[in-house]
């Protein structure tokens, strides 16, 4: 692939140490347009019966920044992510990726999806699995191999490229899935509970690894998670969603820059974010 990651000054759309701001509904942060949802709604009809999965969801994720959707199961957070991935078509509102519709973005391969199951093809070795995206995109074998090896190294899987997926642990498979997502140098990473199936220790380790990868690639990320700490570690803003109908009830800014280390967990601001998100999740009014 000849195109490169678009790089933006990481600090531009994010206040490094600014006070935490809590706003309900859409945030109006200036910055290059990234992922945007405008009054997105999703209603399922079955005969006379109507189920509102999403109502009036608006979200703005500037390019180069990271956002999380957090909420209880069934709040529609995965649905919203899948709307951006063009898997689900919204029944109301518009979702755009850098101004493109999800269908256009999919055709241009500007985003990559990472799901909870690492979704490996069991008959392909790790290298073959990581090469899959490039193969579909029609890249030449040499280029395919080089890029895949580069990404395998980036996610820390060097030496395992000739193993079959079932020979690796769940965490390693998920690293491979991330490597595969990165091979097409996507502008947007859509991650649907990527570490949901992993144990707490592996998950936290991978959280900080993903931080490093995000910094190195400059990608814009939307993460669906049900872990408060994961959301804080990996986000510039966290959208809290409530179910029935699924809507974004709170938007919490995480005031850490992009140069984060594991030490951020001991920062009092981290604890404050945690408390704020917990209150928001349990239906409380915004703290401020």
């Amino acid at each position: 692939m000849s195109f490169r990651f678009p790089r933006f000054p990481v600090s531009a759309p994010v206040r490094d140490t600014g006070p935490m701001m809590t706003t309900t509904m859409a945030a109006s942060d200036p910055g290059p347009i990234g992922l945007r949802a405008e009054a997105v709604g999703m209603t399922y009809r079955r005969g006379q019966h109507e189920t509102v999965a999403l109502a009036e969801c608006s979200l703005d994720i500037p390019r180069g920044t990271w956002a999380s959707l957090i909420g209880a199961s069934g709040c529609g957070k995965s649905t919203l992510l899948r709307i951006f991935a063009d898997i689900v078509k919204p029944t109301a509102g518009v979702a755009t990726l850098h101004g493109l519709s999800p269908a256009q973005a999919r055709a241009n391969r500007t985003f990559a999806l990472v799901s909870q199951q690492s979704t490996m093809l069991p008959w392909r070795k790790i290298l073959g699995n990581v090469e899959l995206g490039l193969e579909v995109a029609g890249a030449q074998p040499v280029e395919r191999r080089n890029t895949a090896m580069q990404m395998i190294e980036l996610v820390g899987l060097a030496g395992f490229e000739n193993a079959y997926p079932h020979e690796l642990s769940g965490g390693m498979r998920q690293r491979a899935a991330i490597a595969r997502a990165l091979t097409l140098r996507p502008q947007f990473l859509l991650m649907d509970e990527p570490f949901g199936a992993l144990d707490e220790i592996t998950r936290e380790k991978l959280n900080f690894e993903l931080l490093r990868i995000l910094r190195e690639t400059g990608a814009t990320m939307l993460l669906v998670t049900h872990s408060i700490s994961e959301a804080i570690i990996l986000s510039d803003q966290v959208a809290v969603m409530t179910p029935r109908p699924g809507r974004i009830s709170h938007l919490v800014r995480i005031g850490f820059g992009h140069d984060r280390t594991a030490a951020m967990r001991d920062d009092p601001r981290f604890t404050a974010c945690e408390a704020e998100l917990r209150h928001a999740l349990h239906g409380g009014a915004p703290l401020h």
């Binding site: 898997i87 999919r106 391969r109 999806l113 799901s115 199951q117 979704t119 392909r124 193969e135």
Partner: peptide
Amino acid sequence: TDVKELLYTLSASPRQVLFMVRLPASV
């Protein structure tokens, strides 16, 4: 379904889905 969704988000052609996923999965 996950594999099919993966190929879908990669905009794979039906032919690519056949040779990369369907046939190997059917072995």
